[in-house]
Design a protein around this nucleic acid. Sequence first.
RNA 1: GGCGCGUUGGCGGAGCAGUUACGCAGCGGUCUGCAAAACCGCGUAGAUGGGUGCAACUCCCAUACGUGCCUCCA
Length: 462
Amino acid sequence: VMNITDVGHLVSDADEGEDKLEKGAKREGKTAWQIAEFYAEDFLLGMEKLGLIPPEHVTKATDFIDQQLDLIRTLKEKGYTYQTTDGIYFDTAKFPTYADFAGLDLEAQRAGARVEANDEKRQAWDFALWKFTPAGQKRDMEWETPDDLLELPRFDSVDDGESSSSQKQSAARAPQSARSEAVSETVRTNDNHDAVMGFPGWHLECSAMAMDILGPTIDIHTGGIDHIPVHHTNEIAQSEAASGQEFSHFWLHCNHLKIEGGKISKSLGNGYTLQDIEKRGFSPMDLRLFVLQSDFMSEGNFTWENLEAAKNRLRNWRGYAALRHQMHDRLTDDTAKDDSDDYLVFYEPTSAIKMALSDNLSTPRALQIIDQAFARLDSVALDNVHRASFYDFIQMIDELLGLQLEASSPDISDDNKRLILERMRAREAADWKRSDQIRDTLAKDNVAVRDTSHGTVWSYLT
RNA sequence: GGCGCGUUGGCGGAGCAGUUACGCAGCGGUCUGCAAAACCGCGUAGAUGGGUGCAACUCCCAUACGUGCCUCCA
């Protein structure tokens, strides 16, 4: 299950963030809904380009508002919540193990906080489950707060300075021309009284969606390392307070990628998109191998030079993968499975990369194993390679690392194969002119040839 | 200001208290019709300063630098 946070702080009249598209969209009169939709689609397209396995469920926070409200209801019934003028909060004091997951020293952190939020929260680290739309504001994304979640009397409604008694009349809530059609379909209108509009707190969606689809306890929860102290801590608190059960058996946290040695930051504008990378002549698979070169728990550093290194490494691997087209199946496979210097069998490295990845996803070691396994092909005649096991090896790499080696190392055309044979004959006849001519012709089809002591072998130029 | 994490050769990046990581790039050589590849070799890596150990890149402390969080970002 992967969630898409399509609800946020996109108050329709806000003017924050440097995102050109967002600003442009506003200029064009688009809504937060349309902006969220745009980025969600862009994200899913990027996933596809990178060859990521699609989740069974891709969930949008806005499709799970009811579940989020139900979760708040459960927490309220169990006494974990309290209400302030601006929302419904989780009372972390009621969840004694709150600081354990991240090993937080809450008092110390509060003492050093740069900005002390000055509100009605009981603890500085209490977090919002539900936020009320500020009086006088109209958000693109907002929903009616169910009455049973509210503690009356509710906060002061100051829509337009009317007294509360007259609000029943104004309950029609005026011409809502600014409201998009999408929103008006979603909002459950209740014309009998003045609704308290609101929207979910930032942490709530993940718990609500996970528990709705996977049940109270999930196996593995993933996320960025930066989510440990706040987001995942809060997820655990609200989920376990509600269910009384462990929320996740395992947590997998990825470290960050730096860029040119420093942080990637929107305000610095030093990030790159997948589109930028493709414009520079790199493929998404180049980026994928670049990422796999370091352990997921350590900080990475993106530079174009490093991406170039990954690209070259991947090109070399494709060349090795293409050797399968230049090998012959052996009828004596079963009796010749023993690995030796003269005869290569690839079952051992195939299981070795599985072992490496089984050890806390050690992709660097898996890559090392692959490099060493491929390198053994350099000094052996292709007829002395166990083709079936080599093919298994390629497929295992693709299955475990998703580098699409098989798909990106197609066989060459029959015409080119004939040219290679013709070149071999020319070389035997010492017709170097013809030989070089054919090599140039092949190069136009991105086919490179090299003459080894075991014969001519082709690979890809780029 | 508080609480963490990191710092390995030209670049990226692992393991390990005593043994060549691996990749990309560079240089020299062998081989080859040429080219490419391959093979051999070379640049004598471990931020800095201390400490513990027979022995430290690998453990401990400090400093510098980088980075993350401390906010209703998720």
